[in-house]
Design a protein around this nucleic acid. Structure first.
Lengths: 181, 181
DNA sequence: ACTGACATGTAACTTGTTACATGATTCG
DNA sequence: CGAATCATGTAACAAGTTACATGTCAGT
């Protein structure tokens, strides 16, 4: 194994938090990790096999329906810490939504304003969901939960900034007329 | 051709703005589009060939060094407009930087604070660059430029929100002591 | 018996990265 | 004539998506 993928480190991180099955990991990517990284089961199972072969995780018991519980080994946790200490390199941006904005001059103003309004609505929706979640988990200051709260805060600020941007853009494209104000 | 990729639409969009060679498109992804979408020449040249075969672009003259200038056909511009009108679907999130934050409980507080400070610095740097660029292009209200200014604004607000988030996180992890304040 | 959630895997395909490979033109 | 930039391509690989495929267990 030349070098571990980001997904591999995500799995390693989850399995350092506690024992989990592939199925539970799959659900985690749909729920707690959804704000941060996504992966499907078809990617997860082969990656778990690779990580086990490389000695970074091991599977302990076998559960009821042929399920396997995995946990990180000492080598796995070391690799995770090494990865966490790597210098951050600026990441390539790829936003389909923003790319569309770049080419909105192609369509009439009503249509581009509509696009931006839909974007604003989507961001407002996500913002509300994140804020409700933050309210629900409260001001936790302990272990892993603390850090998931900090990640969530990033999502909150991101969605708020993007909602405000979309609303600002609408105003710039279709300024409120005297009659409408 | 089953369905066009996002990259294909990016190329179609650029070639609706004006004639360009593959080389010029490659540079555009490094400069004006860098905030929005990235692609390397090894992806661009084959994609141009596919778009031409599908009749969405055509190449006009051949330049000095075997260069080919492409432009969008009417069918290409129609396809671009169709794509712009597609209902936006929420996109999968994948942020390696944020994933690391999720697992920062693994390392000592000094190290996690250091990580967040580096993140803050990177975002502040990008923010400054974007703001300088915004200052340089000014308050343009015409055609494509107007929309690139709007895209840039998204980058500015994003970097600012993320810088502020990182700084907030540092304070949460390593609160200023009475002696340091 | 049937439905739904649990549970794991593989195959085919698309997208994106890194490295390889070549040649033309311009400037100093 | 040498280096930088212009200019276009291919090949091998890594990462991610969608669809296919199978079987278990709990509840009704």
């Amino acid at each position: 194994m030349t070098r571990l993928s980001v997904l591999a480190h995500a799995l390693l991180g989850m399995l350092s938090t506690g024992e989990m099955t592939g199925y539970e990991l799959t659900r985690a990517f749909d729920v707690s990790l959804a704000n941060v990284w996504t992966a499907s089961h078809s990617q997860i199972y082969p990656e778990l096999a690779k990580l086990e072969a490389a000695g970074f995780i091991r599977h302990t018991e076998s559960g009821p329906r042929g399920s396997k519980r995995y946990e990180a080994t000492a080598a796995g946790r070391d690799e995770l810490r090494r990865w966490l200490a790597e210098p951050p390199q600026p990441q390539a941006v790829r936003s389909e939504a923003l790319l569309r904005v770049f080419f909105l001059w192609m369509v009439p103003p009503e249509e581009s304003a509509g696009y931006l309004r839909r974007q604003a609505a989507l961001h407002r929706e996500k913002l509300a969901a994140y804020e409700a979640l933050a309210q629900a988990i409260g001001d936790c200051a302990d272990g892993p939960t603390r850090w998931s709260r900090i990640s969530l805060e990033s999502g909150i600020r991101y969605e708020r900034a993007m909602a405000e941007w979309a609303e600002w853009s609408v105003a710039r494209v279709a300024p409120p007329t005297a009659s409408s104000g």
